[in-house]
Each structure stands twice: as structure tokens, then as C-alpha cells.
Simulated assay, not measured.
Amino acid sequence: MARWQPDAPGRLAAAALDLFEENGYDNTTVIDIAERAGLTKSTFFRHFPDKREVLFGAGTITGLLTEGIASAPAEAGPLDTVAHALDTLGRTFFTADRREYSRRRQAVLNANTELREREALKRIDLTAAMVEALERRGVPISTARVTAQLGALVWEIAYDQWIDATTGEDFGPLARQALAEVRAAEAVC
């Protein structure tokens, strides 16, 4: 692949995923990834601080969620605001063309303790970002914390269902269904 081709981060992510599947995470180096992508090691480090981060998208999901929270209708309650953000995420990031990559990525994460730990830390950061975005909308801190935790749970349920090979459903409707289940559970409690 020529070095001038566009989308270096995407090419690096695809190369890393292929190599992690073929050789395992521990047996793959940054140099291996850069070479597979047709790029240099320095290009890799311009886009990612280390080989773990190549699978975590440099804050893309966090940015989309916080933008979705900010752009929710003013009259939306906290949970509806998070639902709006999840809808935005489904339309812009968790699209049908990303499903197979996401499924493969999750299998690589599940096979490696270090990557599972990194994913857990990323989810904590994601929840904290939702709390901050909700607070900026005037949601009281305790309500924002509970709402963000519920939003993270809804996201996790919907994501797991979305990458499941048997569904084929879009992320947004799966997130709305998970949110309805969370609300139904709250009514029973």
C-alpha cells in the first residue's frame, strides 16, 4: 500500500486487528502494524500513543456521545437526553459497515486481559464524560451520575446485541429497547 493513501488511522486499525487475530496481541509489534498498513512507525505514533490505543478510536465515541447529549432537545429529561446521544452514536458510528470490524475487535479484546482492562477504563472515562455533559445541561450531579451509569449499561447491552452475528438490527433501535428494559426494571423495583 502506498504511503500517500488516505485514512492512516483506519489503515493502522485494520492492520492491527488482522495481526492481533493472526499472531495474538502480545506477538504483534507497532512495527508489524505499521508495515502491514504500508506506513512507518513514526506515522503510527502520530496517531496512537501505543498499540493498545489502535483499537480504541482516540475518543471518537466519547465525543459523539457528549455532542449527542449537548444537541438533545432542551425539554428532554436526563435519560431521554442519553437516549438521544445513543441514537446519534448509532447513526454515525455503529453503522452496518462497522459491525464486522466491531465483532472482530471485541473477540480480540475478549482474548486479552490487558485489552479488557483498557476497555473497562475507557468505559469509566465514557461514563464520566456523560456525567460532565449532563451537568453542562443543568442536570444535578447525583442525577447525572445515575443517568450516566444507566446510559453506560444501555450502551453495553445494545453494543453486545449489535455485534451478535444473529441479530442484524441497527444499534439505535437496540439501544432504545435496552433503555425500555432498564425503565421497566426500575418500575418493578
Rank of each mutant, 00 (worst) to 15 (best):
A13S: 15
A85I: 04
G59R: 06
D7T: 03
N110C: 02
D97V: 04
A184R: 13
R137D: 10
E181M: 14
A37S: 08
A129T: 08
R11L: 13
K122D: 15
S42P: 00
M130T: 03
L17Y: 02
L115A: 08
R123F: 15
E21V: 12
A107Y: 03
V54R: 03
E53F: 00
A37L: 05
A148Y: 01
R99N: 06
Q149D: 10
R145T: 11
S71Y: 01
I157T: 14
A96S: 15
L86T: 08
T167S: 13
V30H: 05
R36W: 01
R98C: 05
A37H: 04
I157S: 06
E132K: 14
A133I: 06
V108F: 12
L64D: 01
A185G: 14
P73E: 15
I61S: 03
I157K: 02
R3I: 13
D164V: 02
D50Y: 01
L86K: 00
V108Y: 11
D26F: 05
T113I: 07
R105I: 03
E67N: 13
T60S: 10
E35L: 07
L55T: 08
A180P: 02
L115Y: 08
Y101D: 01
G24W: 01
A165L: 14
V54S: 06
D32G: 02
G68Y: 11
L79R: 12
R116S: 13
G151M: 10
A85F: 10
W162Q: 03
E119P: 00
E181F: 07
V154C: 07
S71K: 10
A128K: 10
K41C: 02
A180F: 11
A74V: 14
L19I: 07
